[in-house]
Amino acid sequence: MYRYTLLFLYLILMLGCELCYPSPTRGKVFHLGIGLSYAGTDVRVLRGTLNDAREQRKAFSSLYTERSFTSIMLLQEGLVCSDGSIGYDKTTNPSLPTKERVLSALEALVEDMDQDDLLIVTYSGHGHTDGSWVLAPSYDDGKIFTDTGELDESVLLSVQELSALLGQARGKVLLLIDSCYAGAFITESDASLSAIPENPDFLYKLYAAYFSKQEREAPFFVMAATTRDNTSKEPHYGSPIHGYFTQALLEGLGWDEQQQLLVTRKEYLDLDKLYHFVCEHQKIPTEGENPVFYQHPTITGGAMSLVLDY
């Protein structure tokens, strides 16, 4: 008991309030919303992704009314043809989220950021088994699969590519990912304050987490809909339909979709709190025997959490 007391006192004296949360700032907020329905392509159509992207944009816009807020939306919706069929919207959609457009938008936002700024990137769409985002194809026919049945490499934006780009940002970056295998963006760690169970070595794990160079220098924060080995789901019915993860996330932000307003909160909001809210309120189990019937959100590890509002 004596060693824990000494360690605790040392942490308090050396770290103060910085232990849990980085100092919040009032810099500019940038937002990039990416959503794909895959209508008109050769992969399964998703019904909730466009709703996810649009409502997240509204929620964050309302959350940051007192700060400079800039939002870019890249959406793939499909094209209603004259015969009533759904075609691919390559030639009619200037905001189609192709890999080239997504990278171009991210590069411009990262370049505009200062140290006190925050960049929020939301992605709602299909995820490849390695976590890569499946973006809109550059071909007029909307084909995502090749003749050999493989995903075309030109539509995949990998974890490594995104990490390298976002790692150049001078401010803070938050990725909110609602896609299958999104946990591939999360570095394996037992150091997150969100994940530490009660055990005798709690203080030592806390100490190790705080002084871990890898965790302290992580280029961005991530909250993902599921683990690296599981899929992300959306309900079959409802109006409007949202992914289970995004629905809970919107509620955690305080967004009332019916009234189109943000519910007033009495205390600050940070990423750890939002994560716990999602885990407790998403309308699908977080664990089970069959991965088809559950999904568990994941969050970046480390001793600090991102302050979103206060």
Rank of each mutant, 00 (worst) to 15 (best):
L96S: 08
T300G: 07
P297D: 10
D309M: 10
Y64M: 01
K28D: 08
E289Q: 13
G238N: 12
T70A: 06
E251D: 13
Y207M: 04
A225I: 00
F30I: 00
P22G: 12
V159E: 11
F293S: 14
Y204R: 15
L176A: 03
D147L: 04
F60R: 02
G78I: 00
D141M: 05
Q247S: 15
T146P: 07
T65D: 07
A39T: 13
G171W: 00
L135E: 01
Y64V: 00
H242K: 05
L32D: 02
Y244R: 03
R54H: 12
L46V: 05
H296E: 11
R101W: 06
V45S: 11
R26S: 13
I177M: 10
N290G: 15
N290V: 15
G87T: 01
D112R: 15
G183R: 00
L249E: 06
K273I: 03
R67S: 09
D52M: 06
I299T: 06
T98G: 11
I299Q: 00
D272F: 09
G40R: 01
R26P: 01
I196F: 09
L36M: 08
L174D: 02
G254D: 04
Y207D: 10
F8H: 13
L253S: 03
Q259E: 13
C17N: 14
I86S: 12
E111R: 13
K213Y: 14
L15F: 07
K273V: 01
D141N: 14
L32A: 04
Y237L: 15
Y88R: 02
S132N: 05
E215H: 03
I299E: 02
R216C: 03
Y237I: 15
L6Q: 14
K99G: 02
I284H: 06
Y64C: 01
V159G: 12
I72M: 10
Y294C: 07
L203P: 02
T264A: 12
S23H: 12
L156E: 03
G78C: 12
L79V: 11
R3M: 11
G78R: 00
Y244Q: 06
D141S: 08
F245N: 01
